[in-house]
Design a protein around this nucleic acid. Structure first.
Lengths: 240, 240
DNA sequence: TAGTGGTCTAGACCACAGC
DNA sequence: CTGTGGTCTAGACCACTAT
C-alpha cells in the first residue's frame, strides 16, 4: 500500500511511523495497555524530529489506537468498544444506489394538534400545532416503506408547501433545520391494518420499524416512524 | 467549553482556530463548498505560524468539516452523509449497563460439517469442519436473545473449550481473532419453532433478527444470528 | 527531579492546481 | 508562474506524572 517504485511520492515519515506502531500492535509485540516508546526514542529510531513522531502518535490517538497521557506516556488503547454500527441511508438514495426506480405517493398532509404523547416527544405544549405527513415509498412499483412523520412547525414552517414528488421530507428538513442530533430505535412489529394495506402485506407479517427523532437548534424537529415489510426489506451495513 | 478564568490552561491556538472556522460555517458565513482563507492568511490573522493553522485545518478535515486539496485550497465539506447509525452493544454489556442481571445457558455446542450455504458464507470448502454453538441469554431471568453462532476453527481453535458461563463467545473471539471487518443485517422475521420456544414467545410474534459476519486475518471468523423477541427488545442509538 | 507529552515557531523544500 | 497545501526541522517552553 505504500511502495510505488517510481514517480510516486515516497511514504511520508509520519505515515511510516504510524505503520510501524500499528504493525507492532497487530503482531502482539505491544499489547493492550502497554506503554510504547516515548516520542524522543522513536524520533531517534526513525531519524526524524519529535514533531513528526508527535503527529504520527496524535493521529493514532484520534483513531483510538493509542491513548496518550501527558507526563506519563503513550499506551496501546484498550480493546475497541464492541459496537455493531448499522448505517441506514435515505430510502430514495438507497433505492437509486441499487439502480432501481424510486417514487412516492403522498397519502396524507395535515395540521394536527399534539396529543399528550406527541407533545411529550416534541417537548411542546399539549394541543400545539404540528404538521403530519404520510408517504408511501415505492421501489420499482413495489411498496417498500411507509413514512409517517410529524414535524415541528417552528423549525420547518414551509413543510406544508413542499413538492413531495421532487423533494423528500428528509431533504427539505436537512436544508431548513440543520441536523444537530438524532435518536433511533429499531423494532420488529406487526403492522397496523392501514400500514399492512399500504405495504401490501398481511397483518400477521412482521414489519421492520425504524423510529427516529431528530433535533435542530436544541428542539425536536421531526419524529418519524418508518415501516418496512420484513420479507422484502432489511437494514445492512459494514464496519471496518 | 474553553473559558475557565483562572488556573486552567488557556485554549490552545489551534483550538481557537478550529472554533473560529466551525463558528463561521455554522453561522453560514462560509457555505458548503466555499473556499476558506488559505493557511497563510489565517496564520497572519491569528498571529501564529502556519504549522499551527495547518494542524487546526488538518484536524477539521479528519472530522469531515473541511475538504483540503493540495494546490487548490481548503473548502467547507459537503453536507454530512445522511445516515442513521445504530449502535448495538454486546448483549451482556448492555444488560449490565441497564443495571440488570445477565446470565446465559448453553443449549448446543458441537462440531459440524459446513453445508453448502455455510461454506459459501465462510469461504471454505463444503463439508469443512465448523464449530456451532447455541446460547440463550437472559435479562433478569427473562429470555432476551438466542445466539446461534458458527465459528471458523482455523481462527478460534480453542472455541469448544471456553467456559461459556464466564466468557461470552464475543469476548473470546475478540481476544483470539482481532476484529478486522464486519457485515450486518437487521431483519424482522417470524421465529422458528425452536427459537419461539426458547424465547418463550408465540410463533406468530415478530422477532428482531441481527445477522453478523465478522472477519479476522482476511478470513471469516464467525457467523452469528441473534434472535430477539420483538415485543421486549429493540435496537437503539443516538447520533450527534 | 527527571521524563513525558502539549504546544508552538520560523523557517524550509516539495508537489500540485489553476491561470 | 504564483499560490496552495503536505511535510519536515531543530529547537523552545510548559504542564503534568511518577519517583
Amino acid at each position: 500500500m505504500s511502495s510505488t517504485p517510481s514517480s510516486a511520492t515516497p511514504t511520508p515519515a509520519f505515515q511510516r511511523i504510524k505503520d510501524y506502531v500499528q504493525g507492532e500492535i497487530e503482531a502482539g509485540t505491544w499489547g493492550e495497555g502497554d506503554a510504547i516508546p516515548p516520542e524522543l526514542r522513536l524520533a531517534a529510531q526513525f531519524g526524524v524530529s519529535r514533531m513528526t513522531v508527535n503527529r504520527a502518535l496524535n493521529e493514532l490517538e484520534a483513531e483510538q489506537v493509542l491513548v496518550r497521557r501527558k507526563g506519563a506516556g503513550t499506551f496501546v488503547a484498550p480493546q475497541r468498544y464492541q459496537a455493531t454500527v448499522v448505517e441506514i441511508r435515505s430510502i430514495a438514495e438507497e433505492i437509486r444506489a441499487r439502480g432501481h426506480r424510486h417514487r412516492s405517493a403522498l397519502f396524507r398532509l395535515e395540521r394536527q394538534r399534539a396529543t399528550r404523547m406527541l407533545a411529550t416527544q416534541f417537548g411542546v405544549a399539549e394541543r400545539s400545532m404540528l404538521f403530519h405527513s404520510v408517504i408511501l415509498h415505492y421501489e420499482n412499483d413495489a411498496p417498500i416503506q411507509v413514512e409517517d412523520r410529524w414535524v415541528n412547525p417552528a423549525l420547518a414552517p414551509g413543510y406544508m408547501e413542499i413538492d413531495f414528488g421532487a423533494v423528500t421530507p428528509n431533504e427539505h428538513l436537512m436544508r431548513v433545520a440543520p441536523l444537530q442530533r438524532a435518536e433511533y430505535q429499531i423494532e420488529a412489529q406487526l403492522p397496523t391494518a392501514e400500514v399492512a394495506e399500504m405495504l401490501a402485506i398481511g397483518e400477521a407479517e412482521p414489519a421492520l420499524v425504524l423510529r427516529r427523532r431528530t433535533f435542530s437548534r436544541d428542539a425536536v424537529a421531526s419524529l418519524v416512524v418508518l415501516w418496512h415489510p420484513g420479507k422484502r426489506y432489511r437494514f445492512g451495513g459494514a464496519l471496518g
